[in-house]
């Protein structure tokens, strides 16, 4: 499989109105499969959330990660995504989340670590443009001198790679810690002594409104790789709505690793 360059692809941008969590999970699966089947050009999707949730990774234990009382007290829905990695605590307006759906030729021959770094190089550039001294921190973080900014996850399906990232814009750490169980073993990592100190969000680092940061990121991508406005096509939305109901909102999927 020979490698393709970013600029050999006609990148599309989808930035839709806020959607519920299970539908976001489903759109990721559908668009990855559409790109794998070469029915859709490679796409950057910027997410807007219509409600709060925790998104757990494909291999995380629901019981070990979530405090059910905390989640219900704060009205937090729990959904599971198709990629691995850790739990993300989402409140509308508090994160910047995006997905890249690309043919796997873009990362052909790359190991995991190289492909994570490669897929987010444009974001590092965008953050530098915002005055943040950010870098890719293996295995799957974007970080800065004052703390972690973002976590990435990737999965390869068929002939496509899905790379998605959640960046902290603002975060209610107290609420997060009431909903997520963050074990002592995880915090034993030297750089993560305190959960509250682990994340330093973009709001405090830039002083910019969230839409402004998103615009700057989109412009960075556009000038590096080209990007044309697009939307979720009717058959894609139809499949995603069905998949959200049958899979991503189901207890069977969310509890697949109990």
């Amino acid at each position: 499989m020979s490698r393709t360059d970013w600029n050999e692809h006609a990148w599309r941008l989808i930035h839709d109105a806020p959607q519920p969590p299970a539908l976001h999970m489903a759109i990721d699966e559908v668009l990855t499969d559409e790109v794998a089947a070469r029915r859709r050009p490679p796409t950057l999707r910027v997410w807007e959330w219509s409600s709060s949730c925790v998104v757990i990774g494909r291999f995380q234990s629901l019981r070990n990660e979530i405090d059910p009382d905390g989640a219900s007290r704060h009205g937090i829905e729990v959904v599971r995504r198709i990629s691995g990695g850790g739990a993300m605590f989402i409140e509308p307006g508090n994160t910047i989340t995006y997905s890249l759906y690309a043919p796997d030729t873009l990362v052909a021959g790359m190991g995991f670590q190289e492909s994570y770094e490669f897929m987010d190089r444009w974001v590092i550039d965008a953050l530098h443009g915002l005055g943040i001294d950010a870098w890719y921190q293996p295995l799957n973080d974007i970080t800065s001198p004052s703390g972690k900014i973002a976590g990435a996850a990737q999965t390869r399906r068929g002939g496509a790679v899905l790379h998605h990232v959640t960046m902290a814009y603002d975060i209610d750490t107290t609420k997060m810690l009431e909903v997520l169980r963050i074990g002592r073993e995880k915090l034993s990592d030297k750089v993560t002594q305190s959960a509250a100190k682990r994340v330093d969000p973009l709001r405090s680092q830039t002083g910019l409104p969230r839409p402004e940061i998103i615009n700057r990121m989109i412009e960075t991508f556009r000038s590096a790789h080209g990007l044309a406005r697009h939307r979720l096509l009717p058959h894609e939305r139809e499949r995603a709505v069905a998949l959200a109901a049958t899979k991503f909102a189901s207890a069977a999927w969310t509890g697949i690793v109990p």
């Binding site: 494909r58 291999f59 234990s61 691995g84 990695g85 995991f112 295995l139 999965t155």
Partner: peptide
């Protein structure tokens, strides 16, 4: 049951 925030 093995679980975690890894990738497979």
């Amino acid at each position: 049951r093995i679980s975690g925030d890894f990738f497979l």
